Amino acid sequence: METVINKTNVMSGAVVTLASYILGPYWFLFGIFLALNVIDYATGYIKAKFYNKNESSAVGAKGIVKKVMYWLIILMAFLISIAFKQIGSMFGMDLGFVVFLGYLTLATYIVNETRSIIENAYEMNMKVPEWLIKGLDIVESKIDIEAENKMEKK
């Protein structure tokens, strides 16, 4: 049993180290987004199969493609940030602030996935706290305002 625990600790440590190296200090945000992707897909599947009785492999495949596209857009936002930062350094300009593009994109999609999970729960006749829905609206508004402010400052 101790061997299993030791192997699990080594593997989880390796995963966290690799994620930190590749994704940076906020790697866990990507993990949260991935978890929300899985939860959203699962709740959508349950809703379609057991509540709406309209399960479709085409709709499921479309959902998977949509989630892959979210990841590609996030990747693109971070790549653009890196490119602009490097271009700025070529001209002696500090464009380090553009890293916010990637994180704001990620934050927007985290809110979007959370809303989708809540929507699935609501359609399965589950009571969803009103404060959670309003809180997500506020967070989304603040993300949009912050993005606009950053763009106007630079």
Results as ranks from 00 to 15, higher is better:
I46E: 03
A48R: 15
A48V: 02
K49N: 07
K49H: 11
K49M: 00
K49I: 01
F50W: 09
Y51N: 06
Y51K: 11
N52D: 07
K53Q: 09
N54P: 02
E55Y: 12
E55N: 07
A58Q: 12
A58V: 14
A58M: 11
V59S: 11
V59T: 13
V59I: 15
G60W: 06
K62R: 14
K62N: 11
K62M: 14
G63Q: 11
I64D: 03
I64M: 08
I64H: 05
V65R: 15
V65T: 10
K67M: 03
V68N: 01
V68I: 07
M69F: 13
M69T: 13
Y70D: 04
W71K: 00
W71E: 00
W71Y: 09
I73T: 08
I74M: 03
L75V: 11
M76A: 15
A77Y: 02
A77H: 02
L79F: 13
I80K: 04
I80T: 11
A83P: 02
A83I: 10
F84V: 09
F84N: 07
K85V: 10
K85P: 02
Q86R: 14
Q86N: 12
Q86Y: 12
I87W: 14
I87T: 09
G88C: 04
S89C: 07
S89E: 13
S89Q: 12
S89R: 15
M90Q: 11
M90S: 11
F91S: 09
F91D: 06
G92S: 04
G92Q: 06
M93V: 13
D94K: 09
L95H: 13
L95Y: 15
G96M: 03
G96R: 05
F97V: 09
F97P: 00
F97G: 04
F97M: 05
V98I: 12
V99Q: 10
V99R: 15
L101H: 01
L101D: 01
L101R: 02
G102V: 04
Y103Q: 04
L106C: 04
L106E: 02
A107D: 00
A107P: 03
A107F: 11
T108C: 10
Y109T: 07
Y109Q: 08
I110S: 01
I110D: 00
V111L: 03
V111E: 00
N112S: 13
E113M: 11
E113F: 06
T114S: 13
T114I: 06
R115P: 02
I118A: 01
E119P: 00
N120I: 00
N120F: 01
Y122G: 04
Y122D: 10
Y122V: 12
M124C: 04
M124N: 06
N125A: 08
N125H: 10
V128Y: 01
V128A: 02
P129A: 02
E130R: 14
E130G: 01
E130M: 08
E130C: 01
L132T: 11
L132F: 14
L132Y: 06
